[in-house]
Measured scan of single mutants.
Amino acid sequence: EIEQGFLPKGWEVRHAPNGRPFFIDHNTKTTTWEDPRLKIPAHLRG
Protein backbone atom coordinates (compact mmCIF):
# COMPACT_ATOMS: atom_id res chain seq x y z
CA GLU A 1 0.00 0.00 0.00
CA ILE A 2 1.19 3.51 -0.79
CA GLU A 3 1.89 5.74 2.19
CA GLN A 4 0.40 9.23 1.93
CA GLY A 5 2.75 10.76 4.50
CA PHE A 6 5.84 10.77 2.31
CA LEU A 7 4.35 12.61 -0.64
CA PRO A 8 5.64 16.10 -1.50
CA LYS A 9 3.71 19.03 -0.04
CA GLY A 10 0.39 19.57 -1.79
CA TRP A 11 0.16 16.03 -3.20
CA GLU A 12 -2.44 13.38 -2.43
CA VAL A 13 -2.80 9.74 -3.46
CA ARG A 14 -6.17 8.25 -4.40
CA HIS A 15 -7.20 4.96 -5.96
CA ALA A 16 -9.08 4.60 -9.23
CA PRO A 17 -12.11 2.25 -9.33
CA ASN A 18 -9.82 -0.49 -10.66
CA GLY A 19 -7.58 -0.10 -7.61
CA ARG A 20 -4.72 1.61 -9.40
CA PRO A 21 -3.24 4.47 -7.39
CA PHE A 22 -3.03 7.92 -8.95
CA PHE A 23 -1.58 11.13 -7.63
CA ILE A 24 -3.19 14.55 -7.32
CA ASP A 25 -1.02 17.68 -7.32
CA HIS A 26 -3.16 20.30 -5.62
CA ASN A 27 -0.46 22.90 -6.33
CA THR A 28 -1.08 22.74 -10.08
CA LYS A 29 -4.52 21.04 -9.99
CA THR A 30 -3.29 18.13 -12.11
CA THR A 31 -3.28 14.36 -11.76
CA THR A 32 -0.77 11.73 -12.82
CA TRP A 33 -0.27 7.97 -12.69
CA GLU A 34 3.43 8.53 -11.92
CA ASP A 35 4.52 8.60 -8.29
CA PRO A 36 6.05 12.07 -7.74
CA ARG A 37 8.46 10.58 -5.19
CA LEU A 38 10.22 8.70 -7.96
CA LYS A 39 11.29 12.04 -9.45
CA ILE A 40 12.95 13.25 -6.24
CA PRO A 41 16.70 12.55 -5.99
CA ALA A 42 17.46 9.97 -3.30
CA HIS A 43 19.45 12.42 -1.19
CA LEU A 44 16.41 14.73 -0.92
CA ARG A 45 13.92 12.05 0.15
CA GLY A 46 12.87 12.01 3.79
Rank of each mutant, 00 (worst) to 15 (best):
E12K: 04
P21D: 06
L7R: 00
L44V: 13
F6P: 14
I2F: 11
H43N: 12
E1Y: 15
R45K: 13
P21F: 04
T30D: 07
R37T: 08
G19V: 01
I2Q: 15
F6V: 14
N27R: 07
E12A: 05
A16P: 06
G19D: 00
E12T: 08
K39R: 14
L7V: 04
R45L: 10
P21K: 14
I24M: 04
K9Y: 07
H15L: 14
H43G: 12
N27L: 06
H26Q: 06
P41Q: 07
E3Y: 12
T28D: 07
H43C: 09
P36E: 08
I40N: 10
H15W: 11
T32H: 13
G5M: 10
F6S: 15
P41H: 15
E1I: 14
A42E: 14
R37L: 06
T28V: 02
G19I: 00
P8R: 03
P21G: 03
I2G: 10
K29H: 09
A16V: 05
F6N: 15
T30A: 07
F22K: 03
R14G: 11
N18K: 03
F22H: 01
D25E: 07
L38I: 13
Q4C: 14
A42Q: 14
T31P: 01
F23W: 11
F6A: 15
H26T: 07
V13A: 08
F23D: 03
E1R: 12
K29N: 12
G10Q: 00
P36N: 02
R37K: 02
P21L: 11
D25G: 01
D35Y: 01
L7I: 05
G5R: 11
P8H: 15
V13N: 01
T31E: 06
W33F: 11
D35P: 04
A42H: 12
W11M: 04
G19L: 01
T30Y: 02
P21H: 04
T30E: 10
F23K: 05
E3H: 03
A42D: 11
R20W: 00
H26G: 05
V13R: 11
E12V: 05
A42Y: 09
L44C: 14
D25A: 01
T31D: 04
L38M: 13
H26F: 09
T32Q: 14
W11S: 06
R20P: 01
G19K: 02
A42R: 08
E3L: 06
I24P: 01
H43M: 09
P21E: 11
E1T: 15
W11H: 02
F6L: 15
K9W: 05
L44G: 15
I40A: 14
A16F: 01
R37F: 03
L7P: 05
R14D: 08
T31I: 11
H26W: 07
G5T: 14
A42W: 07
W33V: 09
H15Q: 08
R37I: 02
T32L: 01
Q4N: 12
D35M: 03
L44I: 13
A42P: 12
I24N: 03
L38E: 12
A42T: 09
W11G: 04
T32R: 03
H26D: 05
P21T: 05
L38Q: 12
A42G: 14
E3N: 15
